[in-house]
Design a binder for these strands. Structure first.
Lengths: 170, 170
DNA sequence: GACCTTTTCTTGAAAGTTTAACTAGATAGG
DNA sequence: CCTATCTAGTTAAACTTTCAAGAAAAGGTC
């Protein structure tokens, strides 16, 4: 019941010319931007974009720590992927695992001082990169519009909404 | 010279509140959509989104064949990644390699009949998924606006443009 | 032609991701 | 309590991507 819309009627509503152009532009731009930021962070911070996102999340959490599952949910990755990622960040000394007092199954990922420092060092460059690629190129209306559009898309794909899918991802 | 903008002055222009919200929404929506389509295609066509994109490109090329480098450029991936991907698709019987007559270094990736057939089978479902996630949720103005915005972003990240980077990617 | 550089594509290993199975602790019902 | 079920997180194996290196043909240049 995830796909079916024309699947039931048999008639496929293909994309119009404009839709095709927009879709291609979307794919094109989003992959270029992701590649760009991934390379920027790999070069300046020694990690892929998503790992950086994990550190940012932790840096904003109450005591710079967060339960594994919550962290995974916030960044939209599976728990498995998070396990591997945290293992790697732990090797770098930027994150540390800590048992959860209230739930013995649980683990907290904790941002270390080293991790915090490295974030402070690389954040300016990263913000710069985002600004140059995105905000400095769009008009204020476009920025507002982009926000609206992205919120619509996200709400439609959120596990909640109309057709509740699995737990929260997969 | 890729990053530096405040790097030279020392003053970081952080993101405003609205910019932060927009950026988060962007990351959120784009990762959800990519995950969604990846899963849809993995389920219905047995391959990740980017592999599907390769087949689509080939299906639209003159004699359903294309030089490796051109294919890689069109889909925005490295030649190395393409080599591995084509090897996998070859194992599936959907693509076949063919030597290039005019340039003995060259290879053409050719979409097989099996590949073409499989594309015909999975295209409707994929178009449906894109439509449901994107076009059915946006107003016509939003679609137009999204196209404009994405074209601006892409043009700024294209290896050409103002600050010519490396060959075309990396 | 000999020499040097560039272009095309492949390869192998390391890094990252996915999938499915699995351990251990929490929870609910009887 | 005891058992069934659920939840948190990890792990192994298969697969994909990246990175660095390299083989082979093409293009100058003298």
């Amino acid at each position: 019941m995830t796909t079916a819309s024309t699947a039931s009627t048999g008639a496929t509503r293909w994309l119009t010319d404009e839709e095709q152009r927009v879709w291609r532009a979307y794919l094109h731009a989003t992959t270029l931007l992701e590649d760009h930021l991934d390379r920027q962070l790999q070069r300046d911070a020694g990690m892929p974009h998503i790992y950086y996102g994990l550190l940012v999340q932790l840096s904003q959490a109450p005591r710079r720590r967060m339960r594994m599952t919550e962290l995974a949910r916030n960044v939209k990755i599976t728990r498995s992927r998070l396990s591997h990622a945290i293992a790697r960040l732990e090797k770098n000394g930027w994150v540390r695992r800590e048992e959860c007092p209230s739930d013995k199954r649980g683990q907290n990922a904790v941002l270390t001082d080293d991790g915090y420092a490295m974030l402070g060092r690389s954040a300016p460059g990263h913000v710069d990169a985002v600004r140059q690629a995105l905000f400095d190129r769009l008009t204020p209306e476009q920025v507002r519009s982009l926000g609206d559009i992205m919120r619509v898309l996200a709400s439609g794909l959120e596990p909640e909404g109309t057709d509740a899918d699995l737990p929260w991802l997969r």
